[in-house]
Design a protein around this nucleic acid. Structure first.
Lengths: 162, 162
DNA sequence: CCGTTATAGTTACAATTGAAACTAATTGCA
DNA sequence: TGCAATTAGTTTCAATTGTAACTATAACGG
């Protein structure tokens, strides 16, 4: 099975992108591959979407968040969070109360069942992360962390830092 | 605007993930941010989805591909490609012929109009890539390339290389 | 040849997602 | 106070996407 194909014929002056060397494309492939690998671990087992898992993950770390705060921490939009929460509450995995001083807000926490699921998934997720990092040596891992810190640091910022 | 929130109360032994340090999550944020920035450049201007743009990008580099080959090169599934092509052909941006020796296959190429669009977008995409890379110094850029090569190299591979 | 199996690509239908409108509660301030 | 503007969260409807089934053609094996 040959895998070659004529790239741009001589004379054509179009400077096409080479996707396989194009950073945004490569990031996209890598990110999807990695996230999908993790998602496979829990989607079937718990009928949990990636969105829902992310919500659970932040609620495991921060207790009593409101939906908006969850949205902030997960970088998802509030509609997605609202829907994820609806399913999680319905499934008895998240506990929702109303905030004392502000009846618009909810006060969210993992339920006992939610914690059990979390405590099963979190180690699997970490194991997948290790699988990825295992392809790198110690030096590369350090650089990767540093590079991501820089690239994510000030994402060209949407709402100025003042 | 305080931004702190109690992380896990003392005594709770649950080892929650810290999303902000979790590689898959960080990759996902970075990838989405970057791809979206590029997409903003062409979506409005040309009413072009990311999928369609990717198809155009490979057709700019490889002439006369079949739909399946486009799917391979873009890492998209064949239904997505089929739909993107339907729109692109409809809009007169891609030329579709039938393969001589195999009437199932199509032979795809950018049309004149397609090339014009390509030649407008490709430099913008490259500029966005530069914006991202500008946040790194030369050494970091080299490491990033090397790291991505390794991580993407054998993605646990689906169809072995034999 | 003829029937089975495989491949290219499309279509149909359900599930997911996104954008905008909406409800309810709170805040700001005249 | 009291009314306009904000904020939290949900709902609705349309667009996008994913999965499976489908059509048409080609390849294979006796």
């Amino acid at each position: 099975m040959s895998h070659s194909r004529k790239p741009a014929p001589a004379g054509a002056e179009h400077a096409p992108l080479e996707l396989e060397h194009f950073l945004p494309y490569r990031l996209s492939i890598l990110s999807n591959t990695v996230s999908q690998a993790i998602a496979n671990d829990y989607q079937r087992r718990y009928d949990l979407s990636m969105t829902e898992w992310r919500v659970m993950a932040v609620l495991a770390r921060f207790h009593g968040l409101s939906a908006r705060e969850v949205a902030e921490r997960t970088a998802m939009d509030k509609v997605a969070v609202s829907r994820a929460l609806a399913r999680l509450v319905e499934a008895g995995r998240v506990h929702r109360q109303t905030h004392g001083g502000d009846k618009r807000r909810s006060v969210l926490n993992l339920s006992e069942a939610g914690w059990l699921i979390h405590d099963d998934i979190a180690p699997m997720a970490r194991a997948r992360e290790r699988d990825v990092l295992a392809k790198l040596d110690a030096e590369e891992r350090q650089w990767l962390t540093r590079i991501l810190d820089k690239l994510l640091g000030a994402p060209q910022n949407e709402n100025g830092e003042r």
